[in-house]
Every structure is written in C-alpha cells, then in structure tokens.
Design a protein around this nucleic acid. Structure first.
Lengths: 343, 343
DNA sequence: GTGAAAGCGCTAACAT
DNA sequence: ATGTTAGCGCTTTCAC
C-alpha cells in the first residue's frame, strides 16, 4: 500500500471547494446541481493530481466492496477447468467486481480459513466451486451472506447452484451413436466410476449413465456392456478396453466416460490392430484438449466450463438468488471418431 | 456484505469495557497490561457474539490489507500452469494473505482496468504473470507499489522477476542423450519457434536452444538438425518429425521443445513403424500430464510451475525486493523414452 | 489498568 | 448550488 496517495481532500483543496462537492462530482451523482465551472475545476484537479479513489474507504461507508470470493477444492487436478475461472472472471469484470480466488485442497481447516478471510474482507458474495461435480456444502454457517455453488450440489437445497447437464449429455452420446446406425454393440468404458477407492462412484458417472440408459431404453436398444473403472488416467481406459474386446455381442462402439479414458481406449484399439472409426466408433465426454489432439480427432461432449463460471457469477450478482439448480447444456463437439458400424 | 455484523463496540458493551480495551485484547497486543479478568470477559463476549473483525475497516487504519493481486495474460491457454497459481496461493495463505486473481487476455485496456482495480483496493503488492516466458512490462506507472514479475522478464530491469531456468534445461536435455550414448543423430523438433506468425521466435525457444547448443559444443558433438515449427499443437510436431525422418545423419534421438510436439512426434514415429525408444529416443520439455500418459512414458524436463508461483509470492512478501532475475531449476522427470542408440 | 478522543478516506444527511 | 457534520469499524496516542 503506497503511503502517500492523493485523497479527495487534496483534490478539494486544489480546486478550492469542499470535500463533499468533490465526492459528488467524482462519484458522478446526478441531481446535485453543481456548477459546471466547479465540476471542471474538480475534474481538472483530480486529473492533474492523479487522484484515485480508495475503495476500501469507500466500501467501509457503503458496505459494498465490489469483490467476490471464489473458493474451489482443487483446480490443478483437472486442469482444463481453468476455463471455469476465466468465465467467472469475465462476468465479474463486466460488473466491475474483482475476484478473490483460492483453493482448499480438500482440507476443511483451510476451507474455513479462506472463507473467513474473504468474509472478514467483506466480499459481496461467495462462490463455492468443486472441480468434480458432487454433493458438497459450504463450510460453516453460510447463512447471511450470498452464496452460489459452482459445479456441485448440496444436500440441503438451500443454495443456488450451477452444474453441467450430465444427464442430457449421456442421452446425447447414445443418440450420436444411434444416428450413425449402431445398435447392439455399444459398450461403456468408465461407467459410474465404481472402484475400490470410491465404491459409491462419482456424481457425473451416475448422471451420465442414467442418461445413457434412458436413451438406449427409449430406442429399444440394449447396452452391450459397461466396464466400471477409475476415470483418472488413460491407463484405466486402456485396460478396460482390452477387457471388452472379445465380448459378445462384438463391440461396434465405445462410450468413454471422459477423454482420458478415450485416450487409453485409442491406445488399446491400436495395439489390437483396430481402426477408429472404421472398426470401432468412439464417443467421449469433457472435450479437453486431448480430444482435438488425438488422431482421429475425438468426438466429445463438452463440459461447458466457461459458461458455468459465467453463470455462477452473474447469478451471484443478480437480484434473484433463489435456491435452484441451474443445469447448463453440454455441447457436442463432432469430430472424426464416429462412423457407421461395419456390417 | 451482511449488514449486521457484530463490531468491537458490541463486544465492549457486552463485556462492560471500552472499545479500546477490546481492540487491545483482540489484536493480542502485549505490554498493554489488561487485567486477566477483563481479558476473559472480552474473549468470552467475542466468542459468544460470534465477533469477526472487519478487515476493510482495520486496513483503512493500518494501511495494510493483507491482500495481493495476481494478474496474468492467460491461464487457459496453457492449462497446466494452474499449478503456478496454486503455488502462489499456497505461499500467500501461509502468510495470511488473500489473492485477487485476474486475467487480461492480452488486452491492454483490460490490464489497465484490473491493475487499477487492485491498486484502488489497496493491495499490498502485485504479481504480473505471463504464461509464456517473454519480455513484458507491467502497464502504467508501476512506480510506488511493490511488484514482481512471474514467468516473464522486463526490458528495463527495474523489477524482480522469477523465471524457469530454460538455458540449463536445454543443456540438461542434451546431457540425458549423451549419457545414453547418442552423438551424431540428435535432432531438435521445434527450435526457436521461428514461424510466419512469430518470426522472432519465443523466449523459451531461444534459451533452450542456447542451452542445447552449449551442451553439444561442450561435448564436441554436432546437432544433426533443427526443424523450426510452431509449438502449439501436436500436429506441428507430427509434420516436423515426418520431415526429418529421412535425414542424414540418420536420427537416433529427438529433442522436442515441448510435450505437445513430442506427442505429435510419437504419432509420426508410430506411423513410420518406428519404435520408441528402441529405434529412436525422445526427450521433451514442460512435463505436462501428457508426458506420463504417453506410451512409452515420456522423459521430460519440467516447468517448475508450482515453485515459480511460490517464489514470486514469497519474494513479494519478503523484505528484500530488489530488482533481480531469479532462475528456478527445471527438474528432469526420467521415464521410458530414452535408451542407447541402435548401432 | 483502562478510557476518551482523534483520525484513516470516504459518503450522505442536513444546513445553508 | 455548496459546505458542515457525523459517522462506517477500527487503531493508537495520551490522559487518568
């Protein structure tokens, strides 16, 4: 904090008016009928002296800081989620707000400290984000201050939340395959993410699977198989894919629960001498950078990170902040990994 | 901002003492000889009422906000750089500071607005980050306030900056290959990033190439070739690699200027029926997630993002903030993509 | 040992 | 049309 900033008092002295008049002019308040001459002197003095308002002083008076806090569990684990923060930033900036950003690393003590730190600094609102959509609730008594949940849901239903429409995405994945003519050979790689470490699976897994099952049922098609596995590394997708290659009915298409699994599937299919999409079609979720880097480029249903971030902030700053779940559509990125099944 | 927070005055009233005494007790000032009894009453009242200090009021008085600003050009373009922010966050939190985070998207008007916004909110210091190491200078007159440059250099030499030691990394890449026995077949993919769009190349390119050349020269070895190309997509690495496959002397090893190029190289080598590392060794820079996902896993020299972020903040918050360039070592991640050349 | 009072930079009634 | 005055919640000097 530079010690010697120019204050309104300095400007007033320079312009030969009172501090009040300066305040009125500089905050651009209408109806206070200031003489055009005085206003010019003030504006000139402010300019000349390089006056900048002290926003901490201002907000002490107005009880509004034009800042919001965004705390997430971890942004580094799924890197492309940086887009989410970008979206939030963009929306905040449009409304002249600045963003405190921090991560808890899933440590409740850190979370508490961060939340308090932001609240003590009088943020106008808080966004509580999680990088994997799941149930979660803000620490402490979040009563009293404005909060929106980003990419996560709470049990109590007392908060507004913004999440991707995973269910619709699951349906969409199936629809892409059906359109291409696939019916009996559709396998899922990843499933609910039922694993030793996470026997209950992950939220996105449940929703995507529900969507997948709803869409197949609606078309009178039966899923040929679901291999449950960890979604975190291509390696798991590799193994899962190998395990289903001899299955009956013979696989004609793979729905991979994310791009990393799809990457692993690509490696497994290549090792098995299979061509994508001639021998097998692949569709995936997330649309990380990987999807466009793979050869053939991977058709993937995108996590709308940017939009999620934007919406959370604009909701927080809007005036109807009612508890409600806002589901953001997941757009399809059509590329080259789907074709008609060989017959 | 919740309108009805408990203030020190409330606590004082509740405890039957003056606001002054409350301030002394709550800020834990020694030597102010308060009776143990009064102190207990105050602490009790604060606890009971759920008192929390209003840090904006406090900092108006103390001229210290315990906040710092971090503005970067773009974090989304190189996603794994989220680690940098994480490192910064970690160091800030350790010293009880909160972080304003924002991005300019390379728009000078936005940059100016963000910088002013943070300064007007009386941040204790600013970090000016760029996601690709390059020459850059903070907008406006940054005189007066504390600043450190993160992952970028300035022309003027008036700021402290923290950057990766790209030169040493270049040397290291060569050394890894020499150790494995390579000599005359070492090709570089990427080079200085001399392209139509960026005829001057990129800073990391120049530094890595200087290191590569220094290390080969020191060993009396001549580089077999350098293919200049764009570093942004695997596709470019693919094409560059194909173009050098027939070269003379025959390539035995590839130094790829980043992991994306290496990914492209992998695809090209596979298409050419070549095995890594039996036929060709590959070493790369950055150590993004890709490096561990590839098969065989890619040996890469890591960008120390986390450490860069940490160091920038602890430098900013330290008391010797002299203009100086702090070069952070880039650690080698040894994996499976290097072996001895076939003879 | 404790309290009164001033002031950080700003806004906003209320007076002129 | 402009100035006076009283805070916002906190720290800090000085007096009792």
């Amino acid at each position: 904090m530079p010690s010697s900033r120019v204050t309104q008092a300095d400007v007033a002295r320079h312009a030969g008016v009172s501090r009040t008049t300066v305040s009125f002019v500089l905050s651009g308040r209408e109806g206070m009928r200031i003489s055009g001459e005085a206003r010019q002197r003030i504006l000139g003095a402010a300019q000349e002296l390089g006056y900048r308002p002290n926003l901490t002083a201002q907000s002490l008076r107005t009880r509004k800081t034009y800042t919001i806090g965004l705390v997430s569990d971890s942004v580094a684990s799924t890197h492309y989620a940086g887009e989410m923060i970008r979206g939030a930033l963009e929306a905040a900036l449009e409304k002249d707000h600045l963003l405190y950003f921090a991560e808890t690393g899933d440590d409740p003590a850190v979370e508490e400290k961060l939340l308090q730190g932001m609240l003590d600094r009088q943020v106008d609102g808080m966004i509580h984000a999680a990088m994997s959509t799941r149930r979660s609730r803000p620490a402490g008594q979040s009563g009293g201050h404005r909060t929106v949940l980003l990419n996560c849901l709470d049990e109590s239903g007392e908060f507004a939340s913004v999440v991707p429409d995973e269910f619709a995405a699951g349906e969409q994945a199936v629809r892409l395959l059906l359109e291409a003519g696939h019916r009996d050979g559709i396998h899922v790689v990843g499933g609910h993410h039922f694993t030793r470490g996470k026997p209950e699976g992950v939220h996105a897994g449940h929703e995507r699977m529900r969507g997948i099952e709803a869409a197949t049922a609606a078309a009178g098609v039966e899923l040929a198989g679901v291999v449950e596995c960890d979604w975190s590394e291509p390696e798991h997708g590799y193994r899962a894919t190998r395990s289903l290659l001899g299955a009956d009915p013979a696989p004609t298409a793979l729905i991979c629960c994310n791009d990393r699994l799809a990457f692993g599937a690509y490696q497994a299919l290549r090792d098995a001498g299979l061509d994508i999409p001639a021998d097998l079609s692949v569709v995936s979720f997330d649309d990380s950078e990987l999807a466009s880097w793979l050869r053939p480029a991977l058709t993937s249903i995108a996590l709308p990170h940017h939009e999620l971030g934007r919406r959370a902030v604009s909701l927080l700053l809007s005036d109807d902040l009612r508890p409600a779940v806002h589901r953001i559509p997941m757009p399809v990125r059509r590329r080259e990994s789907i074709s008609s099944p060989r017959r």
